[in-house]
Design a protein around this nucleic acid. Sequence first.
DNA 1: TTGTAGGCGTTATCAA
DNA 2: TTGATAACGCCTACAA
Lengths: 339, 339
Amino acid sequence: MPRRVTIDDVARLAEVHKATVSRALNARTSDQVNAETLKRVKRAARQLGYVPNAMARGLRTSRSMTIGVIIPDLMNPIFPPIIRGIEHVLQAQGYTVLIANTDSHDDVEISAFESLLQRRVDGFILATGRLDDQPVVDQAAAAGVPVVLVNRGSGMGGYPLVGGDNVRGVELAVAHLVELGHRSIVHAAGPPNFSTTRSRAEAFEATATAAGVAHQTIYANALTIEAGFQAADTMLAHNDIHPTALMAGNDLVALGLIRRLRAEGLRCPEDVSVVGFNDMPFAEDFWPPLTSVHMPLRDIGAEAARLLLRGIDTGEQDGATLTLPVTLMVRGSTGPAPA
Amino acid sequence: MPRRVTIDDVARLAEVHKATVSRALNARTSDQVNAETLKRVKRAARQLGYVPNAMARGLRTSRSMTIGVIIPDLMNPIFPPIIRGIEHVLQAQGYTVLIANTDSHDDVEISAFESLLQRRVDGFILATGRLDDQPVVDQAAAAGVPVVLVNRGSGMGGYPLVGGDNVRGVELAVAHLVELGHRSIVHAAGPPNFSTTRSRAEAFEATATAAGVAHQTIYANALTIEAGFQAADTMLAHNDIHPTALMAGNDLVALGLIRRLRAEGLRCPEDVSVVGFNDMPFAEDFWPPLTSVHMPLRDIGAEAARLLLRGIDTGEQDGATLTLPVTLMVRGSTGPAPA
DNA sequence: TTGTAGGCGTTATCAA
DNA sequence: TTGATAACGCCTACAA
């Protein structure tokens, strides 16, 4: 394995000083160098297969041109679109995105965060959505690294925040169900320590009360199919709860609910209607196609990235919160309330 | 924004030389330092909130402790499990995984690759599955960076390779359909420049011929729902093709086929059976639940990571190819051939 | 067990 | 417009 080509090698071949090579190869400074020299340097670089060393550069400039993105679970299909939105904006500015998966696990989150800090990321985008990771956020801020929060229900600190309009989403979902004749609705919410859980649950309570329908909220212990399945299990065990419609904390939970209901011989939507949240990819291909509150996931990612870039450039963090509009995608999982 | 804490700051507070701090803070060398000193150093580091600078360290050691993973499309649900497998193995060894999305776009792939090279990744895992990115692979090898290929149909260069058993998968799928009485089967393959496309298509040709059933292969122009939809479109336009069963190049294509068939009023599986490939997450939640060849995605990722680590440690690349066993998941999208 | 010194590959500042 | 030089933060012989 031959030693890698350095700027010195290029300088030697081009017969200039390495400082000149550096200037020539950086877009920002390349106009400071003679056109003739520039050509010679570039040729030499190409000829040698020179690849700049980002670590050396970062050490010198104290900017890694790297952004850390922390998400709880790559397997949840809402994250790929968000990441795509983030990358779309950031790559165009020359940043590389470091994705860290935490599996919704506290210590994994902490060590992932630590590892990103060591790599001197220029900014963080946190999509953990947890209410209890304030420490991580504060630590980032203390380290002078800008942070943007994604998919939060509501702002806690003074950090920039971007997400969908949860309240409006709940209103749309409940209105849809009421219109279909449902008079008893259960909200199978996510875990209480997720910030979206709280805002959706509060909105549900308020909206359902205002609509004058019987309602109740139960909590899944994760935002997964399995947790949804289990939540339905619990609900079925209580024989005092007999809703004709369910509003799930997200689409995965909705899927889990439907699976369990089906196992019980209950058809969706003939016997029970189910509304999901997020309108994740493939929502329309499920069985039945999922009625869901559509979140503009890609845009959420893109806006978060823009907010972060602003924070990096200006060096200051305003606690701006950006709430993007949502819509209700009506599909096969909701229907008229049974007679 | 205060200047970040360095090893020198810690040294000053702990009243030792920075070399001692370095030794104390590195697991490999911490036993070279006096227990008392060690404690003092650690306390000082904690007190100051010291976070080692990975760039400086990497520059010095010429190892970034970073692995580049190039995938064509994060939105394709087969990749998250693969990534998870990769991360599981690599994180345990202290590596950070850099994921690069190419959107199946040539120039994006090249620039992503370039960017990873600049960051001096210690190894590459390429899951692009394309037949025509040999140049990238060769360039990595030329740079002395180990490479492992994932999800390839067949080896091209002498690079380590891990994937599922495509031939066996096709055999299982065809046998299943034949057993159900199907005598006319179409393979809606992926794009020809994907390596898995080739090996699956060849296996299909061979297996179907051996089984003595009428068969034909058509090609979708991508491994997406849309491309599957379009492929079905083309097939329906030819009124000389009337299969009772379809084997798709992957699950997304299968989904696209089903969508288009449904639009035509053809029910699955009553009128046409469809088999997918990969058994991607959620395959069982689709409408109808997808019969699919199960690929051990997570294991594939994990094995690729192990092979890569081996390459990094030994400094040499054997062209070992690892083929993991597959199974057929029979679900609702396949049924008896119509009379 | 600890300190000294040099260098990893760049870029920024200053001088020519 | 180009060259010389120092410094970014860390690790590692080597010496003490």
